[in-house]
Design a protein around this nucleic acid. Structure first.
Lengths: 121, 121
DNA sequence: ATGTCACCTGGAGCGCACTCCAGGTCAAGC
DNA sequence: GCTTGACCTGGAGTGCGCTCCAGGTGACAT
């Protein structure tokens, strides 16, 4: 059962140490366990949860929503329907975002092709 | 050759009137023509350019880069290679972003499926 | 004439998500 | 035993991209 220092977790999750502290402070992370001298020791579970947070954040979920999800995830099974609802709504937004990006990427490609058609330098 | 009021342009482009003024102020838009009393009258070209800016914005291009592109686009044909380079770099980032979103959307779906597997409420 | 309303300017303010800082504590290597 | 350096806390600061405000002007309907 391994534990990790802040630097190791930052390295693995891509969150800065400051962000890890910030996430703990606002309650996205449950209080991380400490050594006798007060230094953080992240558990395997902490790291897994951070991986999940990264997924939500990178798909554009606002901190406020992640906070709500974290709260639900700390609750019992009766919160599962709301967790599902929250994730489904998020997933729909992500899908729309992907569709929009694809359409706009194509427009960018067209512009590049147009510039190219003006005669390669 | 039609012209548009700020409200019409806001409506068509999805940018707020404040954002239109802001874009003009920072030079993303060339000075928009005015009526005798100083009100903006956007041309068809202004609206088309704003549509293009929206494409860049919505695909995550920072304002600073859009500004650079705007500058190049005001230049002569010798700037075309740099415009192409800028757009190609951007397009690559957009593609990576799409790939990342797709992978993470799938992770979100898995989580939803997992919650569902725990027994539908 | 009057009221309403869209619009103008310059500049201040805001929300988000961090990021940095000062001042301090411990652990380990030389 | 001393230095180095990773880490601690509370709180202030930052960057981005808008967004809002005060105070004012002009156009148009009644």
């Amino acid at each position: 059962m391994s534990v990790y220092t802040p630097a190791q977790v930052a390295d693995e999750t891509g969150f800065s140490i400051d962000t890890l502290r910030y996430y703990e402070r606002i309650g996205l992370l449950e209080p991380v366990s400490r050594t006798a001298s007060g230094r953080r020791r992240f558990s395997e579970d902490d790291v897994a949860w951070l991986g999940w947070l990264r997924c939500l954040r990178d798909t554009g979920m606002p901190i406020a929503d992640m906070l709500r999800f974290a709260e639900l995830a700390r609750g019992d099974d009766s919160t599962i329907p709301e967790r599902v609802a929250l994730l489904e709504a998020h997933e729909r937004r992500v899908e729309e975002h992907i569709a929009d990006l694809r359409a706009k990427r194509s427009r960018i490609r067209d512009k590049i092709a147009y510039y190219r058609s003006l005669g390669p330098a």
